[in-house]
Structure formats: C-alpha cells, structure tokens
C-alpha cells in the first residue's frame, strides 16, 4: 500500500544543514496498522507528513496505492490526498466556527462528484461510527477532548480513504480517552481494513498495532 525508498529529508538554512530523515525504506501492506515511535525531534512527524504528501522529501521515491507520487504537482497532490488519505492530528484541528457535522463534511467539499445531500448522509454515517451522531449540531467548543478527536476521526474516514495517517492521536488525551480513540482506530483497521500509520510516544498504544517502527535521529533503527 505504501512504499518509501531511500527517503531523505534535509532542512537547510544559510548556516546549518539538518538531516531530518536519513535513507528511510519502509513498506506498509494494505490493511496494516503500523506505529512509528521515537524520541522527540527524531523525524516521526516529518516521515508521516511525507507519507501524507503534505511535505516533500529531499530525495527518494514514494509509492502509495500503486501510484508513484513523486512527480505530482500541487493540484494532483491535493486531489490524491482528498481521495486516498485521511488525517488525524494531535491537536484535533477542528474548525471552531463550524458545527460538528460541517467539520466532518469538510473533505467532501472538495469532491465535485458528491452532492450536498450525499455529503450529509456520509458525514452522519461517519459520526455514527465514532458514536457522536447525537452531537452533530454541536460546535467543537462544546465537546470534550476525546469527543473532539472522535470528530476528527469521523472527518478522516468520511471520504473512505485507503490510508489514515494519525499524528499522536492520543497525545492530548488522558488514558481513558486515549484508549477509547485507540479502540476506534483498531476497529476501523480490523473491520474496514483501512491501512493506518500512527505516530505515537505511547508504547502501550504502539503495542496494540500490527507493527512498530522506531526512528532515532532520522534513521530507522527497527
């Protein structure tokens, strides 16, 4: 499903060159739940962003869902992200001025083929999956942290993407809420066969996934 070959990421300033990712080679199978761990600043999020096409590698090849995406322009990438990828962020990134249902509908706004009624139906279906259908008219400020992250999951799955990329999805939550979110992700992986790549600091969460990849100073160590 995901194939990274010789991925390097270098941040350059006038005086310093920092190697954020060093020759990363990674294969993720379809339906796999992979977690990435490592100390802060080791390049976990950078790697996830590169898989998610929201950051570009300095060198290396990326193949996602059998498509080599290296030569994509920004419009192709936006289209690809919309169709194939779903994102969950540590700090939720919900739009506070929009209701829960409008937040969930957001990825579908950029699909011309989906009508307004279809958008609404899919968003309600996604909210049902995360157990928040009764909160669809609420606004993010009226929700708890766990509920916000569940809305974020609904937003990530509403477009039925092949891959979900989660950047420390439980990082801002207490353990109970964290477990709740993890269970939803596991359920998605097992029942819907969605491929998930998750960055986490939490060893116990990582152990629940199919495979664990560790990074250290930008290099893959296991």
């Amino acid at each position: 499903m995901i194939s990274l070959q010789n991925i390097n990421k270098v941040y350059r300033t006038k005086t310093i060159e920092t190697l954020a990712l060093n020759e990363i080679n990674l294969e993720v199978s379809e339906g796999e739940f992979l977690s990435i761990m490592g100390p802060s600043g080791c390049g976990k999020s950078t790697l996830l962003n590169i898989i998610g096409l929201i950051d570009e590698p300095s060198s290396g090849n990326i193949t996602i869902a059998n498509q080599t995406v290296n030569g994509y322009n920004s419009k192709d990438m936006a289209h690809f992200r919309n169709e194939k990828l779903g994102f969950i962020f540590q700090s939720f990134h919900l739009i506070n001025d929009l209701s829960v249902i409008d937040n969930v509908e957001l990825p579908l706004l950029y699909r011309k083929s989906v009508s307004a009624s279809e958008r609404r139906r899919l968003a309600e279906e996604a909210l049902l999956k995360v157990g928040l259908k009764n909160r669809m008219s609420h606004f993010p400020a009226q929700l708890s942290g766990g509920q916000k992250q569940r809305v974020a999951i609904a937003r990530a799955i509403v477009g039925k993407p092949n891959i979900i990329l989660a950047d420390e999805p439980t990082g801002n939550l207490d353990s109970a809420m964290g477990n709740e979110i993890m269970n939803i992700l596991l359920q998605l992986n097992q029942e819907e066969k969605t491929t998930i790549v998750m960055v986490t600091h939490d060893e116990s969460m990582a152990r629940k996934t199919n495979r664990l990849v560790r990074l250290f100073d930008g290099a893959q160590v296991s």
Partner: peptide, 16 residues
C-alpha cells in the same frame, strides 16, 4: 492558518 492547513491537508487546492 490552522484552518487553511486542515483544508489543504484534506484536499483543498490553493484556488479553493
């Protein structure tokens, strides 16, 4: 800007 980031991550192009 966070909203812009999210929209773009979920498929919005600059023109959107």
């Amino acid at each position: 800007s966070s909203e812009i980031g999210v929209r773009k991550a979920f498929g919005a192009h600059s023109s959107n």
